[in-house]
Design a protein around this nucleic acid. Structure first.
Lengths: 333, 333
DNA sequence: CGCCCGGAATGAATCCATTCACGACGCACC
DNA sequence: GGTGCGTCGTGAATGGATTCATTCCGGGCG
């Protein structure tokens, strides 16, 4: 199509291309008369700025890349919303990529973002990506880990203390008298899962006679939770409490135990999830959970990212929020 | 910042820029020897293609824009996943925008997508956008409505028959003997809501003595569902059945009725939702719902979009899927 | 030996918005 | 009238990948 460019607008308005560009980006530098005619020309021609050209010239885009483990998980969509809000406040936008707990997809999105010259990358990592992030940084693209503390001091991160959260959840189950706890979640390669498990182990270790069994899942989804629930039902001896690595898994376990196993919750088995997603309280048995300041994580991460992108000498920061226990019927009296 | 371009790679490999470009895009046109040296140079220099330049030259991007009403709604994330899968199969990617049921944000994303010269737009519209879509089409950007049949024959759409779904849900409630039905959902400006309501009205009208009351909500969220639940509890005479415009609203209503109102579901009030999201079966009372082929909608829409983008003379198509009733405890027995 | 053919490589032109050194003009003040 | 300053506008240069008309070269064939 005979696409209209800044050039066509200039011709129509009887000014030069430079003036049109100024009208768009520095209106105060253009006389009112010219401004008016340019605006008119733009409207008549239906001109739309070509972002590719603008970006090419600028050398970087107005975009932040975000890679999450699972878009279907409300935790991550909330986080994404927080990030988006903050980005929009700075006149930028967010591209969302879903790694779906798959290293290849994760790498693919990082490639894509790099080709797009995003201003920076927020990522809840799945595979080993320290090296990859180092390369990005060398090429001028800062990265901030979200929902996971970085082990590398040179990488900023915004996370919640998952060890504390896991400990908190397990301690609560122990405190209401449970002793045989099952931790349901996976893959343990995911740091959040590993940390929550570590916290749970610590709490259990501090009580004589308390045991912790691990029931692994392939992903943190409702479907996998159901599968784990069936595994529990089939096991020789049911635990008296379940700590799920997130709420989706917890909901899957809950459904299976109650519907297929006629298990009473919390009577026979107490249950606690993680994330406190908004349907947690509407569950079959309202779900106890560990709440995280989800949107705040996203907002904070974008803030740090933009700071780093602007700074000549980035000073990495690790922000750690504290989680909060939310007790409902699934582990209540 | 001495950013490496195709130019630098060419120099390092001892070939011309054209050859490097060919090595990247038409490897079969380049001798094995050159290919090898070019690959080596790319690796050594850490060259990353600049998508902006490529896009500028090509005049269009490898991207599809998707605007949804609410990213927190699992229905839309499932749809997005379907769209993404299909897009990736065609070597393209999807940018997701969340209009959050706000016309200004919706328009903002369309502007952004247009500036990015996306290949096409998938949208679950909120406001009146027929005119806007017509303009897009004129400028060579096809649009496909998702989850909503288009009234305009020149616009393609992929949807589910929401009137039939609403009718189906209401007929089911009537069939189990309920007569005073409340439809909970809104805003009614959203076509899906309006259609489901229309279907429900039809079913109710066909039965003598059956009534339909509408309880509006400001959005299709759990929070709004809770608010509506409280409104129901406060009303003079409770309905004996609730048909919610989607599952999130249904879950909110369910929680409030049971927890705050000690209402028995389905004893006192039968309840049915819409979308059959995967936590529906794990609800306090497993939720009856109307299932849609969600991912298929996304995949199909991308297929049609790419077809239209390729065709010189696009032939708009309207695809309508049929919904399916899923009966669980909330309206069972 | 000369010519032609085809594979391989070249490099200038192109896409479009932004920038910036520079020019034009008007006004005020000496 | 001349000088200086400020406002507004100009247009060529820039950025990086792609494309395509053109050149190059070696080998095959008459």
């Amino acid at each position: 199509m005979a696409s209209i460019g800044i050039r066509g607008v200039a011709e129509r308005a009887g000014v030069s291309v430079g003036t049109v560009s100024n009208a768009l980006n520095h209106p105060e530098k253009v006389s009112a008369a010219s401004l008016g005619r340019i605006r008119e020309a733009i409207a008549e021609l239906g001109y739309v700025r070509n972002d590719a050209a603008r970006m090419l010239r600028a050398g970087q885009s107005q975009t932040i890349g975000l890679v999450v483990l699972d878009v279907r998980n409300p935790f991550f969509t909330d986080l994404a919303r927080g990030a988006e809000d903050e980005a929009v406040r700075h006149g930028m936008s967010v591209i969302l990529g879903n790694s779906a707990e798959d290293s290849a997809r994760e790498a693919g999105y990082l490639d894509l973002f790099e080709e797009q010259r995003v201003r920076g990358v927020l990522i809840s990592p799945y595979g080993r990506i320290d090296e990859r992030l180092r390369l990005l940084r060398e090429r001028g693209i800062p990265a901030v880990l979200v929902d996971r503390a970085s082990s590398d001091r040179r990488v900023s991160s915004v996370s919640v203390d998952d060890v504390a959260g896991g400990r908190m959840a397990a301690a609560h189950l122990l405190q209401i008298g449970r002793r045989r706890i099952a931790f349901v979640g996976g893959p343990v390669g995911i740091r959040q899962v590993a940390d929550r498990l570590t916290g749970a182990r610590e709490a259990v270790a501090s009580i004589d006679g308390a045991t912790l069994e691990v029931v692994p899942t392939a992903a943190l989804t409702v479907t996998e939770g159901r599968r784990a629930g069936r595994a529990l039902l089939a096991s020789a001896r049911m635990p008296d409490a379940v700590l799920a690595a997130n709420d989706l898994v917890a909901l899957g376990v809950l459904e299976t135990l109650v519907v297929e196993g006629s298990v009473r919750v919390p009577g026979d088995v107490a249950l606690i999830g993680y994330d406190d997603i908004d349907v947690a309280s509407a569950a079959m048995v309202p779900l106890s959970s560990v709440r995280q300041p989800t949107e705040l994580i996203g907002r904070t991460a974008v803030g740090i990212l933009l700071e780093e992108a602007a700074a000549a000498q980035p000073r990495p920061r690790q922000v750690v929020f504290q989680p909060e226990l939310v007790v409902r019927a699934s582990s209540g009296g």
